[in-house]
Design a protein around this nucleic acid. Structure first.
Length: 119
DNA sequence: TAGCCTTTGAAGTCT
DNA sequence: AGACTTCAAAGGCTA
């Protein structure tokens, strides 16, 4: 749909990736993971949902949009998959040496999520 | 005030 | 190889 590789998009993506604070003891620029299809859908739709839904908070909005996502026809989902793929490729072009493992385990959490029943 | 919580998906680590 | 974990977004809530 939109212009595939607009220079402004590239600048914005780079700028956004630099907004996140640097990790202490790490190089100054924190390069974020590129968003997946649902994350793009989530960001686009969050501002479009009704204000009364926004008033419910991000958690409720996210859960609601998760339901919306599952209801989306694959023809509509496809554009988000294409967009995420595009952004992944652009991200790789702009950060050739970056890998998702650069960020892996960097967040300090109080409790780690466990999908299988925690012992 | 940093992290949780909520969602899907990509990609990492572990068994 | 398959199971499990982390992080992308956002913002009210929590410790």
């Amino acid at each position: 749909m939109g212009p595939p590789q607009h220079p402004l998009v590239a600048s914005m993506l780079l700028l956004c990736s630099q907004k996140k604070e640097a990790i202490p003891g790490e190089p100054n620029v924190y390069v974020k993971k590129p968003p997946n299809a649902f994350m793009i859908f989530l960001k686009e739709q969050r501002r479009l949902v009704a204000p009364e839904l926004k008033a419910s908070g991000s958690k409720a909005t996210t859960a609601y949009l998760g339901t919306m996502w599952k209801s989306l026809p694959s023809s509509e989902k496809e554009k988000y998959y294409k967009e995420s793929e595009k952004q992944r490729l652009l991200h790789k072009e702009q950060n050739p040496d970056w890998s998702p493992k650069d960020n892996y385990g960097k967040k300090i959490r109080r409790t780690r999520k466990r999908k299988r029943g925690e012992s």
